[in-house]
Amino acid sequence: MATEAAAAIPGEIRAGKREMTQARAVRRFKWSVLSVFIALMVGVLGPVLFLQLYFSFHDFSIYLGSWWDAEFAGLEIFEEVVTDPRLGIAIVRSVLFAAGSTLGCFVIGFGLALLMYRPFRGQALFYIVFILPMLTVPIVIAYTGEMLLYQKGPLNDVLSWISGQDVNVIWLANARMALTTVMLLEIWNWVPFSFIIMIAGLASLPKEPQEAAQILGASKWRIFLEIQLPLLRPVIILAIILRFLEAMAEFPKAWSLFQGGPGSATETIPIYLYITTWQYFEVSKGAAMSYVVMMIMIAIVLAAIYFLRREKRALDEMYGAADEDRAG
């Protein structure tokens, strides 16, 4: 009976049901994972964000009593924050730092990935060597960097030896150089991040278009420029955006080496935020600043999501067209 009944169900309906069950299972899995994050957000981050929001709207001074007695200030503190020229300069500095270090990480990381993505003898050893900086604690990188970067330190010695001239760059005390110094350390620290993403991207590229181009006599450079690079665009955007966001939040190296100095040369957003909240004890201003910065970061993330979606759509269209061609 059951077999007969099953046979009576048309194949399309059966396939549809299977798809529905699959979709439900996927949805259930998604929620089981997401619910943990949502619970963490609500239970842990939620109260913190709420408290921060409270401080942002209340003029709290640690010297004038309890925070729950603080006076409501409306948007006054936000107004103070957005008109603070020091924050404006810190944002510009952070963007310059993040852009420079992201570019450096990406170019070097991508270069290494291109050299490494085809298997060769001893590849594993190189992998370990290239990934090591990312596994090093940033504060250790800062102190190691400091020892290397003194005017009479090993780096200037090496540069002098290579160039044949006496190189005396003041890496750690020149206001014009300091941000670049942190940038170089950041690049050294995070090249492996770009390297890993790009090597994964390169390894996942479809072989057929590259082989076809090779058969048609295209040079390696042309294959890279016209096939690999366009196919890698979503991965490139992802690598750049993730690194950029991370670089915007860089604190340990800049703080341990410079504490915002020399002068105010390394006073980036995180440094200024720390100084405001934990040196000036302007808790309300610090909270409002955090929100303003968070909004900027959210805007960057939304822009990133937009670009990623656009790239994915373009790729989907391309693959779709290719499939149609093949089918035709």
Binding site: A175, G263, S264
Partner: peptide, 9 residues
């Protein structure tokens, strides 16, 4: 003071 010392101010 630090800004003046390093020529930023």
């Amino acid at each position: 003071l630090s800004e003046a010392y390093v020529g930023q101010k």
